[in-house]
Nucleic acid binder design. Structure first.
Lengths: 144, 144
DNA sequence: ACAAATTATATTGTGTGCAATTTTATTTTA
DNA sequence: TAAAATAAAATTGCACACAATATAATTTGT
């Protein structure tokens, strides 16, 4: 087909490699996360809790760019596994507070190896990784 | 919580902004793709067909980094909409050939505005966009 | 030639993502 | 202060993603 619309070629898109790369790397996490009985989305949720110990659903959603439609069932699963508790805030019953349990804290030590093991999967120089990181956050901040 | 494992902080991850950015940009496509009755995954599938006119499922999956579990139902939907046809190859009945229809070709003209409209959503300089593009393909190629 | 291995696609089941709607609680305003 | 507006989660419904398995066709090895 003639090259009438170069913008419509997959190779000229910026979004496509972003989308493909994101999924491929999440896939690389899987064997390590399987050992912890975590999905990638559950893993980044736990990562927020390992940092903050306690957070409500709205704030968590802002951290992760996810909404309650995704987070509600996910947090219920994490509660079932015993890693978080869910309770309403006394001051405002609309707000649901998610809190890390001791079991959830323990999981952190076991998860410590994940970033190390992953680091050898990414074949970028530290400089390239830094550049990529900066550009991605620039996009996230400016346009999203 | 003490900073025992800096690698476990969301802000130190490269994968997270990739994952978040990818989803945020796909979200930006939505209003434009809605007008064409396409999802993002259907859109990139059509993009391959607009370039190649005809392709089998395996090759399509290699182009898009997707497997038959995702593509089979998606291609059936595109067939229902009348934009592609699906038939087995005579030489090898295992192979399913997807072919663009005239209706599918017509859709291309209506889709031409999508990359233009999207371009103003991405607040990177052309130079930054090029750098990002190169780094993403480097990651895709080297590690995935 | 024919059983075994391989290959291509389809199916199944689980877990997101997200838009749209609903429910419940709080805040604002007439 | 009571109705209207707003806000936070939950629910619903649809469309991916993808691992694992199944099915059917082809190729390989003896």
């Amino acid at each position: 087909m003639e090259d009438k619309y170069p913008g419509l070629k997959l190779g000229n898109q910026l979004c496509f490699p972003l989308y493909a790369c994101s999924r491929e790397i999440v896939k690389k996490y899987k064997p390590f996360l399987d050992e912890l009985d975590l999905t990638y989305t559950q893993y980044i949720t736990m990562m927020v809790l390992w940092e903050k110990e306690q957070i409500n659903v709205k704030e968590l959603g802002e951290c992760l760019y996810l909404d309650s439609g995704t987070l509600t069932p996910l947090l219920k699963k994490l509660e079932t596994k015993g890693w978080v508790t869910r309770r309403r805030a006394k001051e405002d019953e609309r707000v649901l507070i998610v809190t890390l349990t001791q079991e959830g804290r323990n999981l952190r030590d076991r998860a410590a190896m994940v970033p190390e093991k992953m680091s050898c999967c990414v074949k970028l120089t530290p400089e390239e990784a830094r550049t990529l990181y900066t550009l991605l956050y620039k996009m996230l901040g400016d346009c999203c």
